[in-house]
Design a protein around this nucleic acid. Structure first.
Lengths: 233, 233
DNA sequence: TGGCTATTGTCTCATTTTGTGACAATGGTA
DNA sequence: TACCATTGTCACAAAATGAGACAATAGCCA
């Protein structure tokens, strides 16, 4: 691994990504765990010289998820001095068998631009990076303690997602190509954190005129089969 | 003037502020003009080592407006490589009688965190900084061409302000302590860019339950005097 | 003083949107 | 065939919004 340094990346600037997925009626996010430290963090990275900030984030997401064309939105930039805790990075490097002395870049202060991404839970096999030995899905309501201000970042991401759910019609990005009305409602409920009324929800979604109706899905369950929808014209 | 350098400020990180005011039924913003260049730009600045990002912006606003407790909101971080145009900064420095060679810091690439601020137009006498010889109010609809991506920054600021107008009840920050219903409506119309219905607007604002009604304002005009309101419990 | 005008505060009624429940249709099971 | 769970749709009530009407001023002017 080439250690990140000023010769590769812009100093003082990082990004963190809150990657949302939906599974088992719950909203989840991808969390990394660093080798032998018990430390958990959001996936993040740095911006190369000559690289657009947004492109750096897209690159990082592709490396971790293997996916292109992810729904991605920048939501806030975190720049408090309290997020500068070089001991944490030193612990991570040491536990990883690296000499912190050769990683001056990582030990400096960073302002972090935070993004959230929405992906199809099943379309992805998360890839750990050089410093982390595992990446896993965690229920948003039951996260492990995260390093630095990452818990606050997740909180603000969730809040922004809630605000954008209706405004930007963003829910379908958490579902596969085709889905039932009930699944869509479950996404909304998982994001918002409270139940919605079935008939009102259905009427509202159909009234938007952006759902394409397809054939029914036969699940083998003892009841009427629901229509499948996709997010199209 | 002490030139900004790596020893004072975080490299690669800047902020820009879109400072909105309201006057003459129009929405205005503060624009700086650099000495002898005909170049216009948003007021901005840098983040000191050991200084919170938000505090740096508050500091900058205080220096330019003399005001404390300004309504301030971060809305986006601009990080495209296209915004790196060292020639522009070189032109500004040269026209200002400075040697660009001693300002390597300013000639580097910057990622800029953008904020918008809402202030009472009349409460402020804008102060130019070291490099600019004037700061003035410009109608949002009639801005001069701005350097770099500053026009895009203003556009996104306005858009965010429009979205937050109802959601965060932000309009009253553009008015003095006490104001009439008509003035408040004019602020809304100036921000949104289209007219609102008087009766509907009045009903909606009163229904919010956050306006305190005070005595009437007698303007000397030949009609019923309007109540004054303030933004209180 | 009494009429006149521009504006303000409030009300009413129509229209639209949303809340809430009812009900028939349907795919499977017993 | 009766029954169950769920779905799609409708019907009506309640709430929010659109649009206009109207009375109540504050100052001006004859």
């Amino acid at each position: 691994m080439i250690p990140p340094s000023e010769s590769n990346y812009l100093s003082h600037i990082a990004y963190d990504s809150v990657i949302f997925g939906f599974s088992g009626e719950k909203l989840k996010i991808l969390i990394m765990e660093y080798h032998n430290t018990g430390l958990f963090a959001l996936p993040g990275g740095f911006v190369a010289h000559g690289e657009n900030l947004n492109d750096a984030v897209i690159r990082g997401l592709r490396e971790r998820t293997g996916l292109d064309k992810i729904y991605l939105e920048q939501f806030y930039t975190f720049g408090d001095t309290a997020r500068w805790q070089p001991e944490v990075m030193r612990t991570i490097l040491t536990a990883n068998g690296s000499d912190p002395g050769t990683h001056a870049f990582l030990l400096d202060r960073f302002v972090s631009v935070a993004y959230y991404a929405l992906i199809h839970y099943n379309a992805v096999v998360p890839q750990p990076d050089a410093l982390s030995d595992s990446v896993g899905w965690y229920d948003v309501e039951a996260l492990p303690p995260l390093i630095l201000d990452h818990t606050a970042i997740v909180h603000k991401a969730r809040q922004t997602l809630q605000e954008n759910l209706d405004r930007k019609l963003v829910g379908m990005n958490l579902l596969p190509e085709q889905f039932t009305m009930k699944e869509l409602q479950q996404v909304y409920e998982a994001v918002l954190g409270y139940p919605l009324r079935r008939t009102t929800f259905q009427r509202k979604m159909l009234a938007l005129g952006i759902l394409q109706r397809h054939e029914k899905r036969f699940t083998g369950k003892a009841h009427k089969a629901p229509f499948l929808y996709s997010f199209g014209v």
